[in-house]
Computed example of a mutant assay.
Amino acid sequence: MSASLFPVFLVGLLGSVHCAGMCGGIVGALSLAPPRARGNGIVIRLRTVAAAPAGLQAASYNAGRIASYTSAGLLAGGLAQGASNLSALPALQGGAYVLANLLLAALGLHLMGAWSGIARLEHGGQLVWRHVRPLLARIGPPDTPGRMFAAGALWGWLPCAMVYSVLVTAMLSGSAVSGALVMLAFGLGTLPMMLALGLAGARLRGWLRLAAVRVACGATVLAFGLLGLARAAGSLPASWLQVLCVTPGMAP
């Protein structure tokens, strides 16, 4: 295995308080969507379909979302693997490793409400999202597990600074398979929160907006980034930090 997946999982778990703001409402809306759609100003009544249990709807949506993350990690890791014969790659790897941990530190500050500069990364993803978003209309109302999976797969490409920060680590993981596993671990880390949001809805989102919760989660993510930067600088031993730092095998 090229990368330590435990810290990536923890980043997803703790950083998922960010998901409450970006995707929590989406999950709730999809889970409660009525079995009809509106097109060209006319209400189109669809054939009656038995509504799936809320738990199955939430699980289907998140399975699609995590599948998108895994696919993105596969692409990112594959691109880096394909460029492995470049003579300048070691220097690029070192720089990207520092960048990955800087992004983690910035994400922690963002979750704490101390600095929102990392959110500017999301503007860069709008180009892709403009092509993906129209596909949602073609899925139809998310009244079956299959449609919920498809909706989740598309929403997985929603511009998100937290996802981008972990994608850098996926790129550094050493191979397409390792990159996919990095993003899978991240997606699984976000799963408990997203499943809970799909079932508990606004009540849980209100709790996650509490300053104490966001500061605690953000401070932990910030610590991951700072430990990684300290390791990159060689000021801390690598042996025990492997468990806590996002340290791809390709990194120095």
Rank of each mutant, 00 (worst) to 15 (best):
L111T: 09
G95T: 03
A106G: 07
P134R: 03
Q93D: 11
G124S: 11
I139G: 05
V98S: 08
E122M: 10
R133M: 12
V132L: 13
N101W: 10
L135W: 10
A91N: 01
A137G: 15
A91I: 00
H131S: 06
Q126P: 08
G108D: 11
E122D: 11
L111Y: 08
R120Q: 12
A96D: 02
I118N: 09
G108H: 05
L92E: 05
L109D: 08
Q93R: 15
R120K: 10
Y97D: 14
G94A: 07
L102E: 00
L99H: 02
A137S: 02
L102C: 09
G95V: 01
Q93T: 14
R120W: 14
G124W: 11
Q126Y: 10
R133N: 08
A91Y: 09
G140P: 00
A96E: 04
R130N: 06
L104P: 01
M112I: 12
L102W: 05
L135T: 10
W129F: 08
I118E: 01
N101T: 04
R120S: 13
H110K: 14
A106M: 13
V98T: 13
V98E: 05
G95N: 05
A100Y: 04
E122V: 01
G108L: 06
M112K: 07
Y97S: 15
G124K: 02
V132W: 01
L136V: 00
H131F: 15
L99S: 00
L135G: 03
N101L: 08
A96S: 10
W129S: 08
H131R: 15
M112D: 01
E122H: 06
Q126H: 12
L107Y: 05
L104S: 09
L111R: 00
Q93C: 12
A105M: 12
N101E: 03
H131D: 09
W129C: 07
L109W: 11
G113N: 05
L136A: 08
P134V: 02
W129V: 08
I139K: 03
A106E: 03
V132Q: 04
R133Y: 07
A105N: 04
G108A: 00
G108R: 03
A105E: 04
L111E: 01
L111G: 02
V98D: 00
A100Q: 07
G117A: 13
L99Y: 02
A137D: 10
G94H: 05
W115D: 15
N101H: 15
Q126M: 14
V98Q: 09
G95K: 07
V132K: 04
L92T: 09
L121T: 02
L111S: 04
V128A: 10
H110L: 15
R120N: 07
P134N: 04
L92V: 14
V132R: 03
L111H: 05
G140A: 04
L102Y: 00
H110E: 13
G124T: 03
N101G: 06
V98A: 14
R120M: 06
H123P: 04
G125H: 07
A105C: 14
G117P: 12
H123M: 14
G113P: 11
G108I: 02
H110N: 15
L92S: 12
P134C: 01
A119M: 13
H123K: 15
L107W: 07
P134W: 02
A105K: 07
G113M: 11
Q93L: 15
A137P: 01
L109Y: 07
R130G: 10
L107A: 14
H131Y: 12
R120A: 12
Q126N: 12
L103M: 14
R130A: 11
A119N: 06
A91W: 04
A114D: 13
G117I: 01
R138I: 03
